[in-house]
Simulated scan of single mutants.
Amino acid sequence: MTQAQGTAGPLSRQRERVRVRARELRRASPDAERALWRRLRDRQLGGYKFRRQHPVGRYFADFACVEAKLIVELDGGQHFEPGAMQADEARSAGLNSLGFHVLRFTDREALTERVAVLARILDWLTTHHPHPNPLPPAGEGVASLKD
């Protein structure tokens, strides 16, 4: 039986494993991730599309804006141990090698300073990857419609 006839090849099994793992990570996400996701989803931040627990290479990014090549990572307390800090540096270097920029914040920042975190993300996006089709400010273009 060929792959076109319905058998799943190794690539489709791998994709399914990635999909299942991402789903598990989303279900088990900490409060800080959930709180930040509520503000990033549905293009709420400057019209940019974010994905949660998005696979990038061999990693799962907490949040990824693929069009801008930006990854936002939230680090809990366990990330401040020496071994974990080295692993995070290697992870960031790996993501950078895939063409992504990584912004890291602590869970505490995401929970208590969410507005500042969102402002920093939006600042990076508008500086490094201006949105190609920004929405006009309210009221702009109304005069030309009346003429």
Rank of each mutant, 00 (worst) to 15 (best):
Q53F: 15
E73M: 06
F63C: 00
R41A: 12
G9F: 08
T112Q: 11
T7I: 14
P136F: 09
R27W: 12
F60R: 03
P10G: 10
R43P: 06
E24N: 11
A110G: 05
S97R: 13
M85N: 05
A22Q: 07
D31P: 14
R23E: 15
H79P: 03
A110K: 00
A68S: 10
F63W: 03
E67C: 07
G57T: 05
T2D: 11
R13S: 09
K146V: 13
F100M: 02
Y48W: 08
G47L: 02
K146E: 12
R21N: 14
Y48P: 04
G139M: 03
A8T: 11
R58H: 14
V142R: 11
R51N: 07
R39T: 10
R58A: 14
R58Q: 14
A84C: 05
R39C: 14
L45S: 04
P10L: 12
Y59R: 10
A22H: 07
G76C: 08
F105W: 02
I71Q: 01
R17K: 14
G47I: 01
R17T: 07
A119L: 04
V18E: 11
P134D: 03
K69W: 09
E81C: 08
F60W: 13
Q86V: 12
G94Y: 00
T126R: 12
K146R: 13
L145I: 10
G141T: 04
H54P: 01
A116P: 00
T127D: 09
D31R: 15
Y59P: 06
R27C: 13
F50N: 00
L135R: 13
S144P: 03
H54I: 07
S92Q: 12
L36H: 07
P137W: 13
P132R: 06
R91E: 03
R39K: 15
P55S: 10
L74A: 05
R114G: 05
A61L: 06
A87D: 09
L103I: 03
F60H: 11
